[in-house]
Nucleic acid binder design. Structure first.
Lengths: 334, 334
DNA sequence: AATTTGTTTGCAACCGGTTGCAAAATTTTC
DNA sequence: GAAAATTTTGCAACCGGTTGCAAACAAATT
């Protein structure tokens, strides 16, 4: 069925090696041979088989992307950028949907079977051990959106969640909020923990009163909406820092349903800056993660690791910024 | 580095074939041999290489998913379901991001190089010829969300867009709207054309006046918002049928910004039923595509095609339904 | 023209599995 | 217990490429 090296070689009247070489960049072939081969290949519609090549070279040009948050619009950007960045480099993404599964064992085996050249673990909820499991299996791995820790033994690309938490506290202080609340993402997520830490620490330091601390069960609108009920119990809360835009939008709607207006009665600060944050109905002030930079850098790094596996673990942190829209009152003039 | 068949065979004291057979379901191995092999394999941490297996069997267990609409939240479901359905069957998704590229040539070559077992083209905007290009190259293909046409020569799984367009007209009529507008998705998309046809035909038949017909440039909130301006020019319009929820939400916000209230001054009917349609701020009445069924059926079908390539082209259409929320006035009692 | 140097080419082994076939081992039948 | 039937096993070829090596060729040097 498929046309192979051999067919092309016979038609062109050369050896199989010659054909292989014309399709390998930097190999030694004379102009005349190359021409003959290319002509033959074209006339037969020859396509080299990457599978066979992979077997011989032990490079598959496959990069695994493992994610566990397929329902969050923030991941639309991730998928989009990840696939197009890989495509530029003639690599292919192999998607793994974790959904639930949190033990790395099976996933590592699975990606090893496919002999992926590298893996990007794109999730902010899993512990570092998930990524190191790949490393232990000899698979180059990057933990994108992962928890950054000084003594890293794995590559991490992302943001400093502790710092971002603090940024939220500062944002509230600048706008003279005094009594605030934290409505985090799922409590088990490392990113939630770090943001909470950063937020609570700086809040106390700045003299803010954190009247409520609660967590949504999921990164969803519904969970945010429900979790907000608890915050609404305390009438003193002037502003809420949410662990995720989606959760935040749910929370905003819960507040509105309770008759509060935003930002007059209660302010909201989100996280991620998903597309919907800019919609009129929410006009959400939020902390933006530079997803584009993070993904581009991750892909670059994973490619670098494939070429040079000995590379020592690197942490790449990108700055976040507050995108000012309409869900908080303006900065106090002083 | 990696441990191979040979290593396991030597340790277990059997031939390579024996090892291969214990890892192939339905192959003939005695219990004693199997046991020895499994023990040896475990102790070495052996994982069969799918690449090598693919070369020998010419099955890669890779299914290509080609999409071009990575920014639409509707695709979150698609990615989620697609990956998890494949995973259940021990298959892997290979993602291709079309973004812009509309000529099938390159994409077909690319997926042929990876020898994917099958391809799902998941887009409602491309012509059937895109899918048939795969077919011509001998790759089992399904056009999911594709244009259905009676004399199909390619498998199609999706909805009847003409019928859905008509459903929109009927929905308006039932609620006694008289002057309506169509705000479609990109005009070049086959789905847009079909929905428009169905809508306009039944609208005239039912005596509805379609005062405006216009199209958004993209499946985005922004495009919807802009395109809505043209509709607003005509003050008689009582309700708008939008080609996509995202577009619709942009349009709703444009209407509100112009001081109209929904559904009192103007009604909206969306398409797709993305998660955000259920958010309080929009509470969008919309036509739901059963994405879950469509994807599950597509995966099933592509698997079937891999097993039986001779299968004749099939069209699988799923019914859509109106999800009644708050963006249209209630059905007139009669 | 002979020698040296540098390129191109084909051979053959290899990557890590699968599988048809025939021999060997086991089980069933009489 | 021998013959027949069945199951298990190893051999060796194959899947479609790559690549080290040495032979063949071409160009440069003396």
């Amino acid at each position: 069925m498929a046309v192979t090296l051999k067919d092309v070689a016979e038609l062109a009247g050369v050896s199989r090696s010659a054909v292989s070489r014309t399709f390998t960049v930097g190999a030694s072939v004379s102009a005349r041979t190359r021409e003959k081969v290319e002509k033959a290949a074209k006339s037969l519609g020859y396509q080299p088989s990457l599978i066979a090549r992979s077997l011989a070279t032990s490079r598959t040009k496959l990069i695994g992307l493992v994610a566990n948050n397929f329902q969050n619009p923030a991941f639309l950007d991730v998928f989009d950028l990840f696939t197009s960045e890989l495509q530029k480099r003639e690599l292919r993404p192999l998607l793994v949907n974790l959904s639930g599964e949190t033990s790395p064992k099976k996933i590592v085996d699975l990606l090893r079977q496919y002999s992926v050249d590298g893996v990007i673990v794109a999730t902010s909820t899993l512990p570092t051990s998930f990524a190191t499991a790949f490393q232990a299996a000899g698979v180059p791995v990057i933990h994108t959106f992962g928890k950054f820790q000084a003594n890293a033994n794995v590559h991490v690309v992302g943001i400093d969640n502790i710092h971002c938490g603090a940024m939220a506290a500062r944002t509230f202080a600048e706008r003279s909020y005094q009594t605030v609340a934290l409505l985090g993402g799922p409590e088990s997520a490392t990113s939630t923990q770090d943001r909470a830490t950063g937020f609570l620490n700086l809040a106390t330091e700045l003299g803010l009163k954190v009247a409520k601390v609660c967590y949504a069960d999921n990164y969803t609108y519904q969970s945010g909406r429900e979790a907000m009920r608890e915050v609404l119990d305390d009438a003193r809360v002037e502003a809420v820092f949410c662990g995720d835009d989606l959760i935040c939008m749910g929370a905003m709607d819960a507040a509105r349903a309770a008759g509060k207006s935003i930002p007059e009665d209660i302010g909201f600060l989100g996280f991620n800056d998903i597309a919907m944050a800019g919609w009129d109905a929410y006009s959400l002030t939020t902390i933006r993660q530079p997803i584009r930079d993070i993904i581009m850098s991750s892909v670059e790094l994973v490619v670098g690791m494939v070429e040079n596996p000995g590379r020592s673990p690197e942490i790449r942190l990108f700055p976040c910024s507050v995108v000012d829209r309409g869900s908080l009152r303006p900065i106090a003039k002083s």
